[in-house]
Design a protein around this nucleic acid. Structure first.
Lengths: 347, 347
DNA sequence: GGAAGGGATTCGATCGTTCAATTCGCGGAG
DNA sequence: CTCCGCGAATTGAACGATCGAATCCCTTCC
């Protein structure tokens, strides 16, 4: 039995020979076509096409020092929450990267299984030292981002999805979604529907991200002259916490609507309503944050703040290209979310 | 202002000089430590550690021909469905690959924007010819997989998640989830809870995947001597279709439970129940398929067949390693799902 | 004592591309 | 007629690792 291997891909030299030019000329045809005489270019192009030539990435990477790969660390999918935004974001990032001639390299946080502290830096270091990627996209900067400062310290190129909340000295480019603007949209939407007692379900006060979103609710309420006393509560980001807290609020201050820091919390509210025989929408308004798949499909549809992830991805890649081209750092970009209106705020 | 660049990473030669050995000895220390005398190995190791050396992936790739990268094409996240399994799967695959010393390279299907047919092969070809990846994981083989036969034709190494339903000549390794076993679990679970009129909500008959899942329901019903006449319906995989179809079934044959080919369809059933004031669980049993985040969090919790994606990923990587080591193809692997029981089948 | 053996280490070439420097060819200016 | 200048194409070296073959050194055996 003959174990015929796949044919070896053609190289620059093969193309050069076929076209009757030198290797370098073929290289130029690909990288700086303007240097060639039109007739030569055509001849080389024809040779490239007929051989099905594509530059060997390894050789190019070795010579130029650029792998045209962007590193993205993904954390385990959180089950039993509604935080599935990663899916949409990853795809948007793949698409934006492709248009810039980059691919995405995924890696995980190392041995999370057992016997190891969950080192947030594992993986970054190895990829950096082996020159596997040109840059990183860092996503979970809201956790006091040790990654960002660590990467900055090593002068590793990276762009963050999320503001450097805690670190005033941070000088890296970032892209973020304006959480306050999102909850402002949500609150105004509810007020327009006639609600006045609008509760806030948010995270612990040490979450800067959570406080940002809370501010949008608070500002809007104040601007409309609506009271907020006792209407805000800070809890963990789980369905059960949202469930318990919303039940307690209904019993104490009797809000007619909830603005939530996440879809997960909003789903907790939906559970309370179902348990009490109340209808989301006509009886109690509910707005989530993230526009997860859950928000889109859960009956009767959860109105939710939708982060413009496609736009975020485009801006991240734009910043990355500037960074890699050693252009001056343009600072941060703040993008406005939209509101996806569904049944949970219908009357 | 000094634009101090990141320091150049150390090379084999640097380590060799520090340790007082040749380049090749350092290379051996990394790739075949058994060849070195223990004392030499220790000396080299110390030099490696103190310099923070890691092999340059580009150089290694160029020389060995292996990029230690696995290509995975991701399609746009389908919104307004409950098919978020990709998230869990991608992470499981990243993790399994990491343990085998591989990383995942994500790519998309090319210019899906406008003016282009959605070529399912775009991306594969470019990566293959530029030797960017060692192999592919192909996931959407249920679509009559042109990828599989195309890749096989080019002798490109790949492993499929999904059986080669239509192609008897297919000789590539694959891993799949036993859909019939899953719906068997679901149907038996409902029968144990006292249900006898159990409906099937599935896909069009030309979906082999859907017919596989349907078979599990049908076999189980037959084995228990339960009638299935008029209880099965074949529709598209959308919430609206599931909604409409389940409403029609309730009016015509009045089933007490639904087994669905997907969580998306099951969510459609939930919508019907909410609209009619019926409770999922006590009134009507509902079982989905995929164990998506939606199933996990939607009130009152959707019982769902859970594909063992972590196990699938491990088997895929195992098959990939065998393939790349030119070991004989071990054929396919069929894995049994489990049932995640939740409120939608409670009494 | 010398040859044979074998484990440890070294040397030179090579993977496919791009960079830097050079050569070639041609037209116009001196 | 020579020389300069410029665009177009070529040549040789280098990126950092691994492969194959050669070399060294030390032990063992006759």
């Amino acid at each position: 039995m003959v174990d015929d291997l796949p044919p070896l891909p053609p190289t620059l030299a093969d193309v050069a020979e076929l076209a009757g030019v030198s290797r370098q000329t073929v290289s130029n045809a690909i990288n700086s076509p303007g240097l060639l005489r039109p007739e030569t270019l055509a001849r080389v192009q024809h040779a490239i096409d007929s051989l099905g030539y594509a530059p060997n990435r390894a050789a190019r990477h070795l010579r130029t020092g650029s792998s045209r790969l962007i590193g993205l660390r993904i954390s385990p999918a959180q089950e039993y929450t509604a935080n599935a935004a990663m899916d949409r974001f990853v795809h948007a990032l793949v698409e934006a990267s492709r248009e810039a001639g980059y691919h995405l390299l995924l890696f995980s946080g190392g041995p999370t299984a057992l016997g190891a502290r969950p080192d947030p830096l594992a993986g970054y270091d190895a990829l950096l030292r082996s020159t596997a990627v040109d840059a990183f996209v860092v996503t979970d900067t809201y956790l006091g981002n040790p990654q960002a400062s660590w990467l900055a310290e090593r002068r590793a190129p990276f762009v963050a999805f999320g503001r450097p909340w805690d670190d005033d000295a941070a000088r890296h480019p970032w892209v973020d979604v304006d959480g306050a603007a999102g909850t402002r949209l949500a609150t105004e939407h509810l007020i327009e529907r006639g609600h006045e007692r609008i509760a806030w379900l948010g995270w612990r006060a040490d979450s800067r991200l959570g406080e940002d979103r809370r501010a949008g609710w608070e500002q809007t309420m104040a601007a409309r002259g609506l009271a907020t006393d006792g209407l805000a509560i800070r809890i963990e980001d789980t369905i059960d916490a949202g469930w318990t807290a919303s039940a307690a609020l209904l019993d104490s201050v009797a809000p007619t609507a909830f603005v939530c820091a996440s879809d997960t919390l909003a789903v907790g509210v939906l559970h309370t309503l179902v348990a009490r025989g109340l209808r989301a929408g006509p009886d109690i308004g509910v707005v989530g944050f993230d526009d997860s798949q859950v928000a889109q499909v859960v009956p009767p549809g959860l109105t939710s703040v939708r982060p413009p992830l496609e736009q975020v991805a485009v801006e991240l890649v734009r910043a990355l290209r500037a960074l890699l081209a050693h252009e001056p750092c343009a600072g941060g970009v703040l993008l406005a979310p939209t509101l996806a209106v569904r049944g949970s705020t219908a009357s």
